[in-house]
Simulated assay, not measured.
Amino acid sequence: MRRSATELASMRKAGRVTAAMLEATREAVKPGISTAALDAIARSVLEREGARSNFLGYGGFPAVICTSRNEVIVHGIPREDEILEEGDVLSIDAGAIVDGYHGDAAITVPVGEVSKAAARLIEVTREALWAGIETMRPGSHLHEIGRAVERVAKRHHYGVIRDYVGHGIGTEMHEAPNVPNYWPGTPGPTLLAGEVFAVEPMFTLGTERTRVLRDGWSVVTADGTWAAHFEHTIAVTEDGPEVFTLGPDGR
Rank of each mutant, 00 (worst) to 15 (best):
R209N: 09
T67D: 01
H141W: 11
M173Y: 02
L213K: 14
H157I: 11
Y158R: 05
R251P: 02
G60Y: 09
N178C: 03
G146R: 07
S10D: 14
E144L: 09
I122Q: 02
A193M: 08
A153V: 07
G132S: 04
G112F: 15
A63C: 09
V89T: 15
E195T: 04
E71S: 12
R162P: 00
A19S: 12
I122V: 13
S115M: 11
D99L: 12
I65T: 08
L90W: 05
L129K: 10
N178H: 07
T233K: 08
G250C: 04
E200K: 06
G32W: 14
I161P: 00
P177E: 04
R211V: 11
E82K: 06
K13I: 07
P78D: 07
R79Q: 13
H141L: 05
A28W: 13
E47W: 00
R137S: 04
E208Q: 10
E200G: 13
R79F: 05
V220C: 11
V17E: 01
G240A: 12
G139W: 12
T245F: 06
R2Y: 02
R12T: 13
E231Y: 00
A36D: 06
A227Q: 04
L8K: 10
H232T: 03
T171L: 08
G76S: 10
D93P: 00
V165E: 11
A51G: 03
A94D: 09
L38Y: 08
G60W: 08
E23F: 10
F203G: 03
V212I: 15
A42M: 08
D249P: 02
I33K: 09
K13F: 03
Y58N: 10
A118Q: 02
T233S: 13
A148L: 07
G168K: 06
I161A: 09
L213R: 14
T125R: 07
L56C: 08
A193N: 06
F244E: 02
S4T: 15
V124K: 13
A9L: 11
A28E: 15
E47F: 00
E195K: 04
Y158T: 01
I33A: 11
V179K: 05
V64G: 03
A222S: 08
E127L: 14
T35N: 09
L56W: 13
G224C: 11
L213H: 06
P177T: 03
D99M: 11
T35L: 13
E144I: 00
L90Y: 03
A128Y: 03
L142P: 01
R48D: 02
A148N: 06
V165Q: 13
E127V: 01
R12L: 15
L142M: 07
T186F: 15
P189V: 13
R137T: 15
G224R: 14
E80W: 06
E231I: 12
E134K: 15
T190G: 03
A198D: 09
P78H: 12
A19P: 00
F55A: 12
E23H: 09
A106W: 05
H141V: 13
E200P: 02
W130H: 13
R16M: 11
E123V: 06
L142R: 04
P177S: 04
T190L: 14
G50F: 15
E150Y: 09
A119V: 02
N178W: 10
I73G: 02
E200V: 06
M1W: 03
T135L: 03
A20C: 01
D223K: 04
S140N: 14
P248F: 05
D223W: 09
